[in-house]
């Protein structure tokens, strides 16, 4: 299996960091953070054969989300960034899988249905075959 070269990794890391930079305001690392970047590289490894060598322009240009060539990298960056504990906690999300604890959803105000209950029927009579 083809692996990323050191040059690819350097370009990729700078690209990831520009896609999602660290933020002091939200207290979150960037996507070039060591642990997050390692996850991104692991995720993209099976595609290294088709992605390597990464074009040099990616190292410094502003990443464009609409660029089809960036799609696999963009997807991996988002999937890996948004499963990092620090990032999830800053979003108010408990860092855990949904199962088995699940989540609470409020029952809601069923009196909102009152005007609909008062409506005449909407369905049409179709007769019998």
């Amino acid at each position: 299996m083809t692996a990323f070269t050191d040059r690819d990794l350097d370009i990729l890391r700078r690209l990831a960091g520009r896609m999602i930079p660290a933020s002091a305001e939200y207290g979150v690392p960037g996507a070039d953070d060591e642990a997050i970047f390692a996850d991104i590289v692991r995720t993209l490894a099976p595609a290294a054969g088709t992605l390597s060598p990464l074009p040099a322009r990616l190292a410094d240009a502003e990443p464009d989300a609409a660029d089809p060539a960036l799609r696999p990298i963009l997807t991996a960056v988002m999937l890996c960034y948004y499963r990092d504990d620090r990032v999830l906690v800053s979003l108010g999300v408990e860092p855990r899988p949904p199962f088995p604890k699940g989540f609470e959803v409020e029952e809601g105000d069923w009196s909102l249905l009152d005007p609909v209950r008062a409506r005449p029927r909407l369905w049409r009579d179709a007769g019998r075959m």
Binding site: T43, L79, R83, P97
Partner: peptide, 8 residues
């Protein structure tokens, strides 16, 4: 939904 990487 049993694992952390559920979105992937």
């Amino acid at each position: 939904s049993t694992t952390r990487d559920w979105e992937a």
